[in-house]
């Protein structure tokens, strides 16, 4: 009985996994292409007009960026050193890990178009909100 259930589960999981593989491989290929075609250096020249615009640009760049979150910390740290505002850097870091424009096709395929679009739109605007709230909270804390 248990053996039959495990065999059935293994078959079902293997089928799911095979369906998942082209999405993961496609996603990794797409991320690699995006990282190579849009080098990180482009982003530094985009900021500096106003906090609101910087946050919007930061969230937008973070949304389309792909890769390990570690890269967002490193790049965010470098942007901060080069004079980009903390609001912009925070929006950039938060949207990098919460919004996934590059991952959107995979999210749509796996969790449905409505879910994926609503979730990403909510995450985009909350990245901007978090950026302002974090910076203002830090200012209040002194």
């Amino acid at each position: 009985m248990v053996r039959h259930r495990i065999e059935k589960s293994l078959k079902k999981t293997a089928l799911r996994f095979v369906n998942l593989l082209p999405i993961i491989i496609g996603m990794l290929l797409l991320s690699s292409l995006a990282v190579t075609v849009f080098p990180e250096q482009i982003s530094a020249g985009l900021f500096g007009a106003s906090d609101a615009l910087d946050a919007l640009i930061g969230a937008s760049v973070g949304s389309v960026a792909a890769g390990h979150p570690l890269a967002s910390y490193l790049l965010g740290g470098e942007l901060l050193k080069s004079g980009v505002s903390l609001v912009a850097v925070t929006a950039f870091i938060v949207s990098w890990v919460t919004v996934g424009v590059v991952q959107l096709p995979a999210e749509v395929l796996m969790l449905g178009a409505r879910f994926a679009i609503y979730r990403n739109v909510i995450c985009f605007f909350s990245a901007i909100a978090i950026a302002f709230l974090s910076v203002y909270t830090l200012r209040l804390m002194g």
């Binding site: 369906n19 593989l21 082209p22 999405i23 496609g26 292409l33 395929l109 796996m110």
Partner: peptide, 23 residues
């Protein structure tokens, strides 16, 4: 339904490979 979703995944991979071909 799983097979249908599987087709979508392969189609996605094909489109990405086309993007690589164009690049």
């Amino acid at each position: 339904s799983q097979k249908k979703k599987g087709v979508g995944g392969w189609l996605f991979l094909l489109l990405v490979l086309v993007a690589y071909g164009v690049t």
